[in-house]
């Protein structure tokens, strides 16, 4: 399956991926509204990890054997036939077990909604927002 991969050598740590991820996962999909007036505010599913000069954007790896799916107590996280780790927000109770077990630190805590937020590979787009909007081609969406 296609996954998002980071090219650390050209990641500039601007965090525009986070901005556009929040926008894509907002109600209005309007960048200004999403950041200034929406409540609860959208949470970015991608996080730029940095220890300068090294930085890279990290989101759910959609693992082949996902620890989060194994450990989710309500069945909110499942692995679908395409290989994606799918998240059903309705079922999430905010126990943070996935947050604890994920070796990448990918699931983000949405403290307002008391649920997690996690990369869904932007189902409404051909290419995830973070990849398309990166100004330096530091994220690629491809089969490996």
């Amino acid at each position: 399956m296609k996954r998002v991969y980071a090219k650390e050598e050209v990641c500039i740590g601007c965090r525009l991926c986070e901005v556009w991820c929040r926008t894509e996962h907002s109600r209005s999909k309007n960048i200004i509204k999403a950041h200034k007036s929406e409540f609860p505010p959208p949470v970015s599913r991608v996080l730029v990890e940095e220890l300068m000069p090294v930085s890279f954007a990290l989101q759910c790896r959609h693992c082949d054997e996902p620890e989060c799916v194994e450990s989710c107590i309500t069945g909110a996280l499942t692995k679908d036939e395409s290989g994606r780790v799918v998240y059903n927000e309705e079922k999430c109770v905010g126990c943070w077990t996935c947050v604890l077990v994920c070796p990448y630190g990918a699931p983000q805590r949405d403290l307002e909604r008391k649920k997690i937020a996690k990369c869904d590979l932007c189902p409404d787009r051909d290419t995830p927002a973070c990849v398309e909007m990166c100004p330096n081609q530091a994220l690629v969406y491809e089969e490996r």
Binding site: G13, C14, R15, E18, V19, I32
Partner: peptide, 10 residues
């Protein structure tokens, strides 16, 4: 301005 800080980091 959405206070994202891209300008600060760049």
């Amino acid at each position: 301005c959405i206070n994202c800080g891209v300008c600060v980091r760049q």
